[in-house]
Structures are given as C-alpha cells and as structure tokens.
C-alpha cells in the first residue's frame, strides 16, 4: 500500500468521510481479523471484535497522531487491547483453535488427521508464548512481513525482533519436542 494513498485515506477518515473510512477498513480488515482469530477460537467473537476495532478506529481517528510507525501498527494495538479485554471479561485464557467456523484459504478438509493434529499441537504450543512473541511470529510467518516491517510495526529494533523470535521458536521447539516424547501416539498419528 502506497503511503500517499494511506495518508490521503487517513485524512478523509479523520473527517469521518464514510467512503474514506470504508476504504481504509477494507485495506486492513482481513489482517486484523486474522490477528484476532489467531488468538480467539470463536468465529463470532472474531467478527465482533474486528468490528469493534474498526469502530474504535472511527471514533478515535481524530485524535490519532502519526508517530512514524505505520497506521497498521495502531490498529494492531487496538486489536491487542480488544483481545486482552475479551479474555479479561471472560476470565479465561487463550485456547488452541482450528478456526473451524471461519473461512480459510486452506480448506481444513484437505488436511489429513495427522496434519490437523500437528496444527492443533502447534496452536496449543503458541498459547504458551507471550503476546509479543506470538505477535512477532504472526507478523513474520502468517502475514509474511519482513523482519524490518515487523520491527517497524511493533516499534522495536530488528535486533530485538531477532532475539525475541529466536527465543520464541526455541521455546516452541522445546514444547513440541517435549510433547512428542511425552505422548508418542501424537507423533505416530493416523495417516
């Protein structure tokens, strides 16, 4: 997305011009929904929270001050707060999710049982990471942002991202390795 286009849209959206608001929303809706869906295993909640993020955007845009970080970073922060609020209000912790009810580019039916089991294991393992670690892995490997873009979005240095990412992947490897040794039936899996 060209910065000029985004800044033009932002100006319109700040003035709450419906077309500009709608266009800005369309630019980011799927990545924000993915970000929320990556943490909350309920399609209805994902949709509600995504709507809430963008409603907050409309309300708060006049007060938005560019800080040099991409606009998207601001939306991710709103989304992170929404997810945190959701779990705070529901008094429960993130759970592993297969996102059954939400459409996905990869159709779950295509996966065999073992593959689904692997996904489930990975998603369970991800819940053991900190929010920052999960966000970095999400941006880099789900959204396929570069390390520089990830750093920019989170307001961190590439060095910090590299270190956190390394630690997160090692932690996941340890968890998944431990799970496999503790429950060999999972790795044996049906094929």
């Amino acid at each position: 997305m060209a910065t000029n286009t985004t800044s033009t849209l932002l100006e319109g959206a700040r003035r709450r011009e419906p077309d500009a608001v709608a266009e800005l929303y369309r630019l980011y809706v799927q990545s924000i929904a993915r970000y929320i869906g990556y943490r909350i295993p309920d399609a209805t909640v994902v949709e509600d929270l995504t709507a809430e993020v963008f409603l907050r955007m409309v309300e708060a845009l006049p007060r938005y001050r560019p800080t040099g970080a991409p606009f998207e970073a601001w939306l991710y922060r709103i989304a992170a707060a929404q997810v945190a609020n959701y779990y705070r209000h529901h008094q429960r912790h993130p759970q592993a999710s297969l996102h059954e009810a939400i459409g996905s580019e990869s159709t779950p039916v295509e996966f065999n049982v073992q593959k689904q089991q692997e996904i489930h294991e990975l998603q369970s393992a991800l819940t053991n990471l900190s929010d920052e670690q999960r966000t970095i892995l999400f941006l880099r490997f789900v959204e396929r942002k570069s390390h520089q873009e990830t750093a920019h979005l989170l307001g961190k240095t590439v060095e910090s991202i590299a270190t956190t990412q390394h630690r997160a992947l090692k932690q996941l490897a340890k968890i998944l390795g431990a799970e496999k040794t503790e429950s060999p039936s999972l790795s044996g899996g049906a094929s």
């Binding site: 993915r34 459409g103 996905s104 580019e105 996904i119 991800l126 992947l169």
Partner: peptide, 12 residues
C-alpha cells in the same frame, strides 16, 4: 517457522 506458515489463513 515453516509450520506456522502453514496454519490456516483466516478470512472473514
């Protein structure tokens, strides 16, 4: 990391 890239990509 590769396995994370294979997680279902959610689409509203």
């Amino acid at each position: 990391a590769r396995r994370i890239t294979e997680l279902p990509r959610l689409t509203l």
